[in-house]
Simulated assay, not measured.
Amino acid sequence: LDGALVDELRISGSVSGRKAAIMIGDLAHVEHIRLENGAKIFGDIVSKWEPYFDGESFRVSPKESSHTVPGRLELGNLPSFDADSAGFFIRDRLHTKIFLGEQTGSKGSLPHPDLHARVDIHGSIDGKTLDLVVSGGESLIRGTLDISSLQLRSDSILDLAVGGSFSQVDYLDMRDRSVLNFVNGVSDELEIKDKAYLGDTAALRLDAHQDGSIADTLILPDDAAVAGGSVVAEPGLSYAQIRSFNASPRDFMNFMERFVADVRNMVAKSGLEVSFPKHVWYENGMLGMEVKCSSRGCRAGRVISSVKNAKEEDLTWRYCLSGAGSVLLLFLLFLYFSYERHNGRVMSQKRAEHELSAIMKTDEARG
């Protein structure tokens, strides 16, 4: 192997397959897969590529044939490795990174997050060397995860919508304002086996029963870290349940308190606290309502959208640009009128000097 077999695979349309929509063989290294806005995958994404370090060199072993000798990877001049550094090298250089919701600009420009992207995967993602990165927008996976790592970048949303499933990931990294959404009306379970980090205001949306107990399960490692120390978790209910709770603020308060207590028990081994929810979500996870509580109980307020943050940020930039344009226009008008005023003064002065000169010449002629 001299470099990846496929450096980059970009998909913005539909791809489907019987056994798998995207299959990476045990002897094929694919470096990057980018699923852009509008991409629809009908089938699983599977990778059998599993390089390993035998103490001296990096190798791959074909799984389809037991008679084939493991092949050595030709990776150029490399330093010596121990088990830990070899593992890091494999994760950094030999894994396949799958990016969801990225936008590619003109030729030669680097890909960047697409805050309005929509990516649908109707299948599972399975591979020990697969790293899933949700870059921007909203992505939906109707299947299970059995992968190396899952990263949600700022303002991105990942919906796990299969229902009644078990997924496992080695590493979880949720950046600021990202959302991992389990809300679908059915119990799901996700286990993070090695490391987990949740950024500031990174949110978990979990299905909840009528009494406030959580229906979904998130298993975090003992050393999981959260920016600020508090997990942001918000419940998902049916529209009928939310409407019923709105008619009884005290019952709504009891529901919210039970939900927070249940989430706290779920993350107790990690020593994390849980903040009180500010929103409650419908079972589809797309729409929700603000929650306001007082000593009398809780009530659901205005309806909000799951992707409002990206739109509001976009509008903020528009307002800033509009304001800057207005300031620039006023400045140009100021310069114009200042010039006209100055030019008018100069012209008036020249006319006055001309008239004075004419008068003086007339007086001299008379004298």
Rank of each mutant, 00 (worst) to 15 (best):
D120I: 15
G13W: 00
E8W: 05
G123M: 15
D155T: 01
A196C: 03
L158K: 01
H279R: 13
I192V: 14
A233D: 04
A4G: 06
E74M: 10
A352F: 09
E189R: 15
E283V: 09
K107Y: 13
R258K: 15
S47F: 10
S109Q: 11
M266L: 09
A208H: 07
N77G: 14
Y171G: 01
G367E: 09
A358C: 13
G123H: 09
T68Y: 05
D114Y: 02
S295T: 12
T316V: 06
S156M: 08
P113D: 00
R91I: 11
R72T: 13
I98P: 02
T316F: 04
Q241H: 11
D114W: 02
S213V: 03
L5Q: 06
S80V: 11
S148N: 11
L100H: 10
Y336V: 09
K107I: 14
R302W: 06
A324K: 06
Q210C: 09
N254A: 07
S124I: 01
M23W: 07
K361W: 03
D262H: 07
R351G: 01
V46Y: 13
A324P: 00
S322F: 10
H279Y: 13
E312H: 00
W49D: 01
V179C: 01
D120N: 11
I45F: 05
S16W: 06
L100D: 04
